[in-house]
């Protein structure tokens, strides 16, 4: 119960923050608004930033990210970045396995040697 309230409070705070970002005067086109308009023009389908933000947040939680962290992480992405990851969070490159790669390659080499050279040694002995 208390946990849920915390999440709601954080979400509300984030959306408030987003509201303040837009330019104070409605008649001036801020740089961020201009870039958003430009991006919308280039992506024919059109981006619904708020919707993708919720999608990304839910997807992060589904992939094991702490729900409170997921809120801040989704809020930290730009509209264009959201559009990039919203549909592809499970397929985009996720850098992480540098260590395992080396271990894996050594293991495969050992396996090959076991099946070829190593068994030969045993026959001779």
């Amino acid at each position: 119960m208390a946990f849920r309230q915390i999440i709601v409070a954080i979400t509300a705070a984030c959306f408030l923050g987003l509201g303040f970002q837009t330019t104070a005067s409605a008649s001036v086109i801020g740089t961020q608004d201009y870039l958003a308009a430009e991006a919308r023009a280039s992506h024919l389908a059109g981006i619904n930033a708020a919707l993708s933000r919720a999608d990304v947040q839910a997807e992060l939680v589904a992939l094991g990210v702490d729900p409170a962290d997921a809120v801040t992480r989704a809020a930290a992405l730009s509209d264009e970045e959201l559009a990039q990851v919203a549909q592809e969070m499970r397929t985009l490159p996720a850098g992480g396995d540098g260590l395992l790669a080396v271990i894996g390659i050594v293991f495969i080499v050992l396996l090959i040697l076991e099946l070829t050279g190593v068994t030969d040694i045993f026959k001779k002995i």
């Binding site: 962290d69 930290a76 990039q84 969070m89 850098g95 992480g96």
Partner: peptide, 23 residues
């Protein structure tokens, strides 16, 4: 790590690396 690591992907996404640097 809490800002960029995704347990279900065992790694981090490029855009989140950039976003974390910005923050």
């Amino acid at each position: 790590a809490p800002g960029v690591y995704i347990p279900g992907r065992r790694g981090s996404l490029q855009v989140e690396m950039l976003a974390a640097a910005r923050s």
